[in-house]
Design a binder for these strands. Structure first.
Lengths: 128, 128
DNA sequence: TTGCTCCTCACGTCACGTGAGGTGGC
DNA sequence: TTGCTCCTCACGTCACGTGAGGTGGC
């Protein structure tokens, strides 16, 4: 596959693909002239990478869990991330609700709205 | 309030506070010697900022919606962000489920697990 | 006087984006 | 031969983090 085909199938950009290669996440098997040629399974590999990225893994972590194959390694890392993910989802939900309410609120000044104030009160509450 | 008090009440770092000041999101009312002194309402202002940040607003966007007061301005920006937020929550949920299943899966090689494969299939599905 | 907190640069980091200038396949 | 896609630097960006070296309040 040409890099353009990979782009079409994944929606990732050339810059992203180059970057993933630079940090050792993917590699092209050969070159056609200057051009990188990829095997078909690159798409599945990128799906794993993107799934992990959406889950908040750093690229370095993804390198770690996908290249050092031992099951226990990625299980350990993944377990920690799962808790973090749950917290982030909860955070986003709070932000979503606060913003959604601000949009629907009839109050002329949202800062006067007790519902919105309750949202604000929750922002630093988790940090305690 | 001293910057240390703000840190204690919000959990934000000195670097973050300095950065927010630099981009014009907050300001100290005066100095005590070299030290920034903040009014009490800085905490509420930071709560709004952090809420927006968690919602995926950039700092520039937060400057825009909190300094140009008109209600219509922030309503327009917020509406767009709300959709984005819903997509991101759905993304995180997908990533969470994929990773959670990988952790509980009895299959020796997760790549052989059809459940995990289904998660991977969904990764680029939304991009189509 | 001694800590401790605070200050101001300035450079680093992470995950890319964005040209600039050039090469190669079809 | 002409486009078009691809290439390699190299520098930019966003939201901070991290020292280095210094000042000031209690």
């Amino acid at each position: 596959m040409d890099i353009g085909d990979v782009r079409n199938e994944t929606g990732l950009t050339t810059a992203t693909l180059h970057h993933y290669e630079e940090v050792g996440l993917i590699s092209s098997t050969r070159r056609n002239g200057l051009r990188r040629q990829y095997e078909d399974d690159i798409v599945e590999r990128l799906a794993v990478i993107v799934l992990c990225r959406r889950g908040g893994f750093t690229l370095a972590e993804i390198v770690e869990i996908t290249t050092t194959l031992p099951r226990r390694t990625w299980r350990r890392v993944a377990k920690n991330k799962l808790d973090e993910l749950d917290r982030r989802i909860a955070d986003l939900q709070l932000a979503r609700d606060g913003i959604a309410h601000a949009l629907g609120c009839p109050q002329p000044d949202i800062m006067q709205c007790e519902h919105f104030q309750a949202s604000l009160a929750g922002v630093f509450a988790t940090a305690d």
